[in-house]
Amino acid sequence: MSDLLVRLYDLPEFPAEAKVKAAGTVVRRAISPERYFILDWMRQHFHEVWAGEAALALSQLPITLWIAVRDGKLLGFACHDTSAKGFFGPTGVDEKERGQGIGEALLIATLKGMREAGYAYAVIGDPGPVEFYRKQLDALEIPKSNPGIYAGMLRKPK
């Protein structure tokens, strides 16, 4: 699958935003004092590579990482401008919290943050749920793009 392109200047309304808020979940930009807590959580629930990208997001000003929190518990995250400028991701939600709209709320908050930063378009590199992005965001496939560009990336030995 190729990378996807999303228009940011006419983002649709997402019902998940209100649903998540009504459930007591706050979606917001992370703050620097949360850095090590977030990175440790990401290493535990996802990938070391994603934690590396999140470290970059937490080092930028303004920070380019959004989190979902309920009752002081981290539920999910989404970043932009980590793999490359204009790229959305990585993003993830705690496995026990999936299916509640948290991922959608993080997606829209991050894309709105990109729009506020001056981007007209976002690239979703190596997209997972392609049909979701196509349906919800009218995302377009970028011909000849190569989501496997990082196949030769350094990894921790097994």
Rank of each mutant, 00 (worst) to 15 (best):
L5D: 03
R7P: 05
Y9M: 06
D10I: 00
D10F: 04
L11M: 05
E13A: 14
E13P: 00
F14I: 10
E17L: 10
A18Q: 05
K19L: 14
V20W: 06
A22F: 08
A23Q: 14
R29F: 02
A30T: 08
I31E: 13
E34I: 00
E34M: 02
R35T: 11
Y36M: 10
Y36C: 07
F37G: 03
D40L: 00
W41V: 00
M42E: 04
Q44D: 05
H45S: 13
W50E: 15
W50G: 05
A51D: 08
A51R: 02
G52N: 13
L58A: 04
L61R: 13
L65I: 01
I67Y: 04
I67F: 01
V69C: 04
V69Y: 01
D71K: 07
G72L: 05
K73I: 14
G76R: 02
C79G: 02
C79K: 05
C79I: 04
F87W: 03
G89Q: 14
T91K: 03
T91D: 02
T91H: 13
G92L: 01
V93M: 12
V93W: 12
V93P: 10
D94S: 15
K96N: 10
Q100I: 07
L107T: 12
G113Y: 07
G113F: 13
G113I: 12
M114C: 03
M114S: 05
E116H: 08
A117T: 02
G118C: 14
G118Q: 06
G118P: 02
Y119L: 02
Y121I: 09
A122V: 13
V123K: 03
V123R: 03
I124V: 07
G128C: 09
P129T: 03
V130E: 02
E131D: 14
F132I: 06
Y133R: 08
R134C: 09
D138K: 12
A139C: 12
E141W: 15
E141S: 15
I142D: 12
K144P: 08
K144G: 11
S145K: 09
G148D: 11
G148R: 12
L154M: 11
R155D: 09
R155V: 12
R155P: 06
R155T: 11
K156F: 10
K156A: 12
